[in-house]
Design a protein around this nucleic acid. Structure first.
Lengths: 218, 218
DNA sequence: TAAAAAATACCCGGATTCTGGTATTTCACG
DNA sequence: CGTGAAATACCAGAATCCGGGTATTTTTTA
């Protein structure tokens, strides 16, 4: 039985330790590295060339979506497959990550048996989605205004700053003060963000950011 | 050395498995039970009388704050101490949980050495806060309109339903339709929620709910 | 260095939320 | 079986946000 080399990516130290302890109980798994944000994940993936990257989504600095894009887009990392391990099963997440090149998508509340199976499947380059994720993908789509394949919309640095202040319950005026801008500018940014993400309210924005872990400096 | 009996509470199966694997490496720790939401946590704490409950906050059905209140308020559970294990170090969380009776507060990105120490300290009935949490508590308070000791405000069932629909980017009118109510009623509820939580915008509400894990049925 | 992207700023009008009331009905708990 | 909390519903004004634009300056990057 071949040993599978694993890179663990999660911003929570205890989760990393726990996963490592869990995986070390399996003789055919070998955790070769850990990363605590997207940037580190890309670096370590390049350096260590693991068979599989187990990737969290919400992380500071660079989230798991961007990191997945970079890793899967790197042709010299052909033998490295990405499996997402997330709390959320939103359609947006699933779509974006599949388009980014992830081969697997597990929820954090699946059991260890399924984790085992998923790691084997994905590290062999095959697809593995846990049941709730499959169901989400199979469910009828309502309207889908953002067209297929056009999934990736980069949010700029300034836009992220503004979102972070929105999370702190600030209105356009207060954000403008905090960033030394005109309120008009802040509203333009907000408008642009809403449009990019195909959303229509601050509530959606806050949710979007929270799901990606942007609440603590990112 | 006495064995410390532990009840693990977290809604993510893999986190439970990971923590269990991690703790099983320590000879003086014994995981005697697991719970996946607040209600279960209270039940198992009562039945198993562990020395320590390691409690996540965001959970469906009943969150960790309520569960902590119930466990610490139960006089027959004098020997059971609660240690919170959370992603967030908001002042509100810390205050509420300390008032609820938690003895410890660890962030998920602390290391295993600190976890060990914290478990020993808290299971002995002493207080343990990790450094970032201490810093948050020590930091000067801005205004603090909700007075001390008046921390707990119960959010009703109906109010939670409305918050959940706000997370789905619905406005008052759409929420009213979904619940077969008058828009006026929905706005009254929103007003009451904002007042209860001492907030002033939907953004804060969404953040509040996301931090508690109310996004997936709760 | 030229073109593209990001950041800045403004106008306008309609929609929605927020604030501060009041008031009636339903339901649960002691 | 009564009292209080929860849920329902309305009014009105002020503040804020959302959608649709346009336009200039700065920064990146190809």
């Amino acid at each position: 039985m071949n040993i599978i080399n694993i890179l663990l990516v999660d911003d929570h130290h205890l989760v990393l330790d726990g996963m490592r302890a869990l995986l070390s109980q399996e003789p055919d798994f070998q955790v070769v590295g850990e990363a605590r944000n997207g940037r580190e994940a890309v670096e370590k993936a390049t350096a260590l060339r693991p068979h599989i990257v187990i990737m969290d989504i919400s992380m500071p600095e660079m989230d798991g979506i961007e990191a997945t894009q970079l890793i899967c887009g790197n042709k010299s990392l052909k033998g490295t497959n990405v499996m997402v391990l997330s709390m959320y099963s939103n359609r947006e997440f699933i779509n974006e990550l599949m388009e980014a090149g992830a081969k697997g998508y597990l929820l954090k509340n699946t059991g260890r048996a399924e984790l085992r199976e998923a790691i084997h499947t994905v590290s062999a380059g095959q697809r593995y989605l846990c049941k709730p994720v499959q169901e989400t993908m199979d469910a009828p789509v309502k309207s889908r205004s953002r067209k297929e394949g056009e999934g990736f919309v980069p949010i700029t640095k300034r836009e992220k700053e503004i979102i972070r202040l929105l999370l702190a319950e600030k209105n356009s005026h207060e954000i403008a003060d905090a960033l030394h801008l005109s309120p008009a500018t802040v509203e333009t940014h907000r408008k642009n963000i809403l449009h990019k993400l195909d959303m229509h309210s601050t509530a959606g924005l806050v949710r979007y950011a929270m799901e990606r872990g942007w609440n603590l400096e990112g």
